[in-house]
Design a binder for these strands. Sequence first.
RNA 1: GGCGGCGUACCCAAGUGGCAAGGGAGAGGUCUGCAAAACCUUUAUCCAGCGGUUCGAAUCCGCUCGCCGCCUCCA
Length: 485
Amino acid sequence: MRVYNTLTGKKDELIPISPNKIGIYACGVTVYDLCHIGHARSAIVFDVIRRYLQFKGFEVKYIRNFTDIDDKIINRSKQEGISWDAVAKKYTDEYYRDMDRLGVRRADVEPKATEHIQEIIASVKGLIDKGYAYAVDGDVYFEVSKFTGYGKLSKRDIDEMLAGARVEVDGRKKNPMDFALWKSSKEGEPSWDSPWGPGRPGWHIECSAMSTKHLGESFDIHGGGADLIFPHHENELAQTEAYTGKPFVKYWIHNGFITIDKEKMSKSLGNFFTIREILDKFDPEVVRFFLLSTHYRSPIEFSDALLKEAEVSIDRYYTTIIRVADFLKADSGAQKPSAEEKAMEETVNSFMDRFKEAMDDDFNTALAVGHIFELIRETNRFLDTRPSGPKTQELLLKSRDMLQQAGSVLNIFNKKPEEWYDALMKTKNVPYPKADILEKIAQRQEARHKKDWAAAYAVRKELELHGIILEDKKDGTTWKVNVSS
RNA sequence: GGCGGCGUACCCAAGUGGCAAGGGAGAGGUCUGCAAAACCUUUAUCCAGCGGUUCGAAUCCGCUCGCCGCCUCCA
C-alpha cells in the first residue's frame, strides 16, 4: 500500500521498519479547552488509519499524547481560578467524552508530558552535551544552524525564513529561529527541578521524548494536523535526529483542515464549532461519515447542509439493511432465478478488493465510500427483482457482511436500524413517544381494514408533521424518522 | 516576499495518460388504496482559461486568472 509522506512529498510504498509491525504516534491535543470539529477530524483520520492497518493484519502500536502543561493551560488556570493540573484534568475528561462519543478508539498508550519530565530532561541534557543546544538564564534553546537537515520536512530554508521576518527578536538566542527545549518558570508558575533551574519543557521536546520512549528511536508513522508541520514537527524531527543520530520517522502523515466559508477553522479566528454543539444536532456516525467522505488531506468545508447530506447517506444504508432483513425473514426459500443475480454476485464478490484497493491508496476513504454505495445500490436493485432461494439468501448475507466489514474499518454502520431511528428521534427532537406512534399505526390499520382511506391518510399526515414517515408493507406498517426534514 | 495546495455537473466529491466513480438536489417514470423506500431514465461531447508534449490528457509541461494554507499558538 501507498501513503503520502510529507517528508518526501509523494506517495511512498508502506514498508514497516519491523515486518508486520507498525508504530504510530499522533499528536493529540493541549488540554486547555473543549475540542472543536477540527480536532475531531484529526482524531478520526488517525483512528481509521489505525483500524485499517489492523484490518490488513499489521500489529499496530498506537500512541497519542496529551500536552498537559504549557502557556495556554497556565493562562486558563488563571482565568478559571483553578490550578493548572485541574485545568488539564478537566479538559482531558472532556476530550474523552467527545472522542468516545465519536467512536474514536483509545490509543494503546496515551502519555502525558508531565509524566515524562525525566526523559525530557535527559534529552535536553544530551542535546547540550552533543553541542546542539545551549542554556541561557535557565532557558535551553536548540541551535537550529547546527542541524544540517533543518527545514527538510516543511521544505523551508533558514535564511529565507529569516528574510520573512515574522520571527520574534530575542537577543539571548544565537539565531532567531532557535527554539526552546526548556523554559524557566516565573514565580508561582508550575515547575520541575532541572540542571538549569526550575522550569518546564518546551512544546516540541515532549513529543520527541514520549514517542521515542514508547516506539523506539526510529518508528514508522507520525501524524497530526497539517498546521503542525511547521514548526512543531520540523523541530521535533531536528532535535530527535540530532539527539539519536538516527532517522526519526519514516512516514509523516498530515491531515487537512476544516474550513468555514473557505477559511481555516481556528481558535484565533473564532470561526469554530465544538464537537459538543455539533453532536447536539447530528449523530456521531453522521459526523464520522461526513469527515470520511472527503480525502483526509483535502480541506473540508463545514456546514449544516453538508452534514444533512451525510445523514441522508447513512439513512440510505439503514434503509437497505432493513430491506435485507425483511427479505431474509420472509423468503420462502423457493428457488427463483433472478436476472440480476450475476451482476449482484459480481459486485458482492469484488467489493472487498475494491474497498481495499481504495484504502491501500493513501487511505482513500472517499473512494471507499463510493464503492460502499455501489454495493448498496446493487443490493437494492437485486431485491427489486424479487428473487428467492438459497443462492439469493447467500448473496444478501454476504452483501450485508461486506458492508459490516467495511463499516467496521471506518467505524460506521455500527448500529441496529432501530438504534439509528432512536438516535434520530433525539437529534431531530421528535417530541412524540414511540408508544403514541404505535397507537396511531394501530388506529390507521383499523381504518385501512374498513377501507376508510381518508382516515388512514389523516393519520399518515399527522405523523408526518412530527417527522415520522409510515411505510406500508405486506405484513404490516413500520415507521421511521424523516431525515430530510 | 518564500514555500505548498486547490479550481471536476445545481451542490458535495473520487479520478493523476486511454472513452468522467459515488452521494445529495431537480425533472420524468415503474411500483403503491394513498405514501415511503427502492429502481429506471435524465442533468459535465467535458474537467478555471490559453498554449504545448503525446496516437491519445481532467490527468504531464508552461503561462494566465481565481481561491486557500504555512512561514506566530493552532488538529
